[in-house]
Design a protein around this nucleic acid. Structure first.
Length: 310
DNA sequence: TAAGATAAGAGGGACAT
DNA sequence: ATGTCAGTCTTATCTTA
């Protein structure tokens, strides 16, 4: 439902590297593609200076060169605003100096804005870590989510929105990028904003950062549901088979992958004589019974699956 | 009790105005 | 920007086997 499929006309990315393979290499200080080894700096929207820290760990590591990074920000403690019109003793500046002064003033404003973004990102880093740990997601999600959040923050997408929702959206986006089967509800219920807002932030992030999300394959949901219901590997195989057939016939586009997986498992379990109720399957898959029913009816009909009579 | 049917409503994308 | 439209999923309630 909240899936975003890049249309056929979607602009080609600058990098050939699929986003889910891009990781931050702390040794080299670059984003690299794990497939090609290609350095993909342009996945990072780089408006900030060079000394920024990408991760909390890195921040600590870099602190060996002096006091903690946050205290070395150039703006730290500067309270004066550069005037474009008068010098220190109040004399008016001539035209050349005025231009120079406004340049400096813009620079100062930019630096100040940068540091506030940095602080925001630091707090987000803590929130992201908390969320990922609370949800028992792989720790690698933290880095991906941080990369996403950083880009969003530097593009000014966070201003006016709750940090919590943007964090949740970043974590969800990170999971989607890495094809980790997690629902937006699971993530959204950990924050105050609610599902609606998290979903909105997620879409905003995907659109503005032009992220290309891999389409979630319903088969990825199968093993989780199967093991939750203690069904046999045979059921799992059969369900996957049904789903592959469904995909070839184009029945899966636009449908909730969890619902499709649930329906396929329902059918497979029925066929193999180890049936579960729609209710059980629906709750294990995190969809409603109605959805299971609709998908199930569709699959049975369009794939011509004969059901065992009882 | 499980499954099916039906209806109303939410939330969003596509597309036009 | 705003409105309409088609499609999906959810919630709730009723019926059927």
């Amino acid at each position: 439902m909240e899936d975003t499929y890049p249309g056929p006309g979607a602009a080609e990315e600058k990098s050939r590297c699929p986003p889910e393979y891009i990781v931050y290499d702390e040794e080299r200080g670059e984003y690299v593609c794990t497939l090609t080894g290609e350095v993909v700096e342009d996945t990072v929207i780089d408006t900030g200076p060079e000394w920024r820290a990408y991760t909390p760990e890195e921040k600590t590591r870099r602190s060996r060169v002096g006091s903690p990074l946050t205290h070395t920000l150039p703006d730290y403690g500067i309270l004066t605003t550069i005037s474009s019109y008068r010098d220190a003793s109040g004399r008016k500046l001539d035209a050349r100096l005025r231009i120079e002064a406004s340049r400096l003033r813009r620079l100062q404003a930019k630096l100040r804005a940068t540091t506030s973004v940095e602080k925001n990102i630091e707090q987000a880093a803590r929130e992201i870590t908390r969320l990922v740990e609370a949800l028992n997601l792989p720790r690698s999600v933290i880095d991906t989510a941080m990369m996403i959040y950083r880009q969003a923050a530097e593009k000014g997408l966070v201003r006016g929105r709750s940090l919590e929702s943007m964090v949740a959206a970043s974590v969800y986006a990170a999971c989607r990028m890495r094809s980790i089967p997690v629902s937006i509800d699971q993530i959204a219920e950990m924050v105050k904003g609610g599902r609606k807002e998290v979903a909105r932030c997620y879409r905003l992030i995907v659109r503005e950062l032009q992220l290309r999300m891999p389409i979630v394959d319903p088969i990825r949901y199968v093993s989780r549901i199967v093991s939750a219901l203690k069904l046999s590997p045979a059921v799992e195989r059969r369900a996957a088979e049904i789903l592959m057939k469904a995909r070839r016939m184009g029945l899966t586009a636009g449908k909730d992958p969890a619902g499709l997986a649930a329906a396929a498992i329902y059918i497979a379990a029925l066929e193999l004589g180890d049936r579960r109720t729609q209710k059980e399957i629906a709750s294990a898959a995190g969809v409603t019974e109605v959805t299971v029913r609709n998908r199930y009816k569709e699959l049975v009909q369009k794939l011509n699956i004969p059901l065992p009579v009882q």
